[in-house]
Each structure stands twice: as structure tokens, then as C-alpha cells.
Design a protein around this nucleic acid. Structure first.
Lengths: 198, 198
DNA sequence: GTCTATAGGTGGATAGAC
DNA sequence: GTCTATCCACCTATAGAC
């Protein structure tokens, strides 16, 4: 097979791609069907055929993001055995998002939280749950292998780490400065993966 | 003077009070002049008399928030001498906001950042600058007094702390659970103010 | 599955009376 | 300083032709 044309996405997928980027950059209340339509050169009515309401589109958006993220985490588990390397790969997922000038989809939706329909609220929390559970498990693995040093319960440390990553992305983007995020990463992760303070 | 009626706020102040709460809960793109008007039982036209445009209102909002925060930090400096106590008072400012079911005004605006007019963007960054400068100074004070232990440059630790607080508020609010924020606080602050890991 | 056309509502903002 | 009335652009969403 020649390494030419990328696989043609279905129309719903392309809609989700554009919507995802718009939410990650502008927020759920910061874009409209018209924005997606003009970018894809289709009409708003056509979008409503695939996603009847904005709430439905938003819910699908989170579901796809969740699944993609889940697969990425599975990939890390398959590739790496060292908890420290798993953690690095994990935070790199976030760094990759920020490098595209985006925020975490669910971090963004968390700030729009009060205005979201119920199904979206629940889905946002489930995304955070997924993150916290995975990080907590990896921290536990590292603790057992004596490659990670924890100052408390893994679940607590995981929650703090996930929240701190979301905040670091948020602030770093305001300065348009990815290195701000990367510096925060080091501060947050190094104390965990180092045997003792250097 | 009898401890009766609270001081009557001017109309612009009351407008700012309502707008501030709406931004902190719904985001800058999640409320309208109509929302403020109905709550204050005035017309939208009346609001435009005091704040010609939404951008002007937003800019005033950040300026007032900045000043109020600056005064709160000055108050902490006046009240406390121990850097550890200053830090506790500082993070309590954030906890107080979250207990009112709000996010930091500028944390919220940071997520709306891409859609904000220039003057608001600049003002948001200045608020973060203020926070980071103050925290860095307090950390330095603590380091000199040997009551604070830093694993790096005070400015870097301050940046990470401020960003982590913003993220911890964001996530905690999605769960409607202030204790989540408080737990994160302990994880973030305790390693700084304790002489050594317990 | 995409279009035209449109409904019904809300957005920020303005003119001019009081 | 607040009101009524209004503008126009935009919003989400639907009906019905192709």
C-alpha cells in the first residue's frame, strides 16, 4: 500500500474533529454549528442530521475523547513496564494537546460545567475518574516496585496530579508558553519518580 | 453605629457583583446582559449606560478583582510574619471562593481566553503575575527563615503552585466537592511548609 | 445525506423619551 | 440614570424539496 492519502474520515468523524478542536480552544459556549458548517463547507441543517442537538454532539464528543484516551492509556501499559516511564508517557499526552494550542477537552468542559446538560456533566466526571484510576494504579505499581515514592495514598496523589496538570495547561495557554507547562510537569512528577530529593 | 444595614452599593458595583458571580460560575460566554438585568430588575439598556460594552464590563471586572485580591494579599502580609501562615491564608482565599461554588475569576477567564478581547487577555495574565510574584516572595521569605523548604527556584515553585490551585478548583467543582480541593491543598502545601517529609 | 428556507428566540448594542 | 422600542446579527433547531 502506497503511503499516500490518509484514511478518509466519515462525515460524523470530521464533524467531531472540528467540534473537538473548537471546544478545546473556545469552550462549549464559544462555538456554534455555523462555525463547524463553514469550516466543512456544509450547511447547519446537514450537521443537525448527524447530531440532532448540540447536547448530543457534546456527549458524543466526550465519549470519543474518553475512548481515545482509554486506548492511549492501554497503549502505554502495553509498551512500558516501569511506572516512571508510564507516568512520563502519561503527562506527554497532555503536553501534546497543549502543543496544538488546545486544552484538555474535559478540562475545558469542567469550566463550562454549570451550563452543561446532565449527560455531559456525568461524562466529564467519568473522564476524570478514568484518569485518576489509571494514575493511581500506576503509582501503586511504582510503589510496589520501589521506583515511585508516595507521600500518601496513591488515589489522593493521583487526584492532585490530574488536577494540577489541568491547571498547568490552563495557565500555560494564557501565556502561550508550553515551556511553562513543561516546567510545572517537572516540579510535579520528579518528586514522585526520584528515589529521594536530588 | 448600629450593626444594621450593610453599606448600600452603587449601581455599577451591584452590576459588577452580579456579573462577577456569573462569570465565576458560567464563564464569560455563558452569561448575558439579560441575565444581569433580570436579577437586578433593570433593563439591558440601563446596564449599557454604566458599561457600554461587554468587553468594557469584563475589563472592569478583572481590574476590581485584581485590586481586591491585591488588598487581601497586603492584609495577609500585615497580619502574618510566618511564611507558612501566609501560605495557608493565601490558599484559604481560594478555598473561600470555591465554597461559594465559584471558580477563580481569572481561572475561568483563562479557559475562555481564546475568545476574549485583548485588554481582558492582558488583565488575566497580570492577575496570574500578581499571584506568582506574591507567592514567590513569600516562599523566599520562608526559605530565608528556614521555615519553607524549596526544591528549586521560588518563582518556579510559585508558578506551579498557582497553576495547581486553579486546576484543583476546576476539578473539585465538577464533583461539587470542596473536600477534594482541600485534600489537594494539603498535598501541595504540606511538602513546602514541613521541615522534612513526616 | 445534503440542500433551501425559515421559524422562534436571544445576543450585544443604540436612539430617544422621560 | 432608567426607561421603551428597536436593530441586526446570530443562535439552535425544524420542515420539506432534491
Amino acid at each position: 500500500m502506497p503511503p499516500t492519502s490518509p484514511p478518509p474520515s466519515s462525515t460524523p468523524q470530521r464533524i467531531l474533529d472540528v467540534a473537538e478542536r473548537l471546544v478545546q480552544t473556545q469552550g462549549f459556549n464559544g462555538f456554534s454549528y455555523a462555525d463547524i458548517a463553514s469550516e466543512l463547507h456544509v450547511t447547519k441543517a446537514s450537521l443537525h442530521y448527524h447530531f440532532a442537538t448540540k447536547a448530543a454532539l457534546g456527549t458524543e464528543l466526550i465519549a470519543r475523547y474518553h475512548d481515545t484516551f482509554q486506548r492511549a492509556l492501554d497503549g502505554i501499559d502495553a509498551d512500558e513496564r516501569d511506572a516512571r516511564r508510564k507516568l512520563r508517557r502519561y503527562v506527554d499526552l497532555y503536553a501534546g494537546v497543549l502543543r496544538k494550542d488546545r486544552l484538555c477537552l474535559c478540562g475545558m468542559l469542567a469550566s463550562d460545567f454549570a451550563t452543561l446538560p446532565r449527560p455531559m456533566k456525568d461524562a466529564v466526571r467519568r473522564f476524570f475518574d478514568l484518569n485518576e484510576r489509571w494514575v493511581a494504579r500506576v503509582l501503586e505499581e511504582g510503589r510496589k516496585a520501589r521506583t515511585v515514592r508516595l507521600g500518601g495514598a496513591a488515589a489522593e496523589v493521583a487526584r492532585t496530579l490530574v488536577a494540577a496538570l489541568e491547571g498547568a495547561m490552563l495557565v500555560a495557554r494564557s501565556y502561550g508558553d508550553v515551556s511553562r507547562f513543561e516546567a510545572a510537569l517537572e516540579r510535579l512528577v520528579t518528586p514522585l519518580v526520584t528515589r529521594q530529593r536530588s
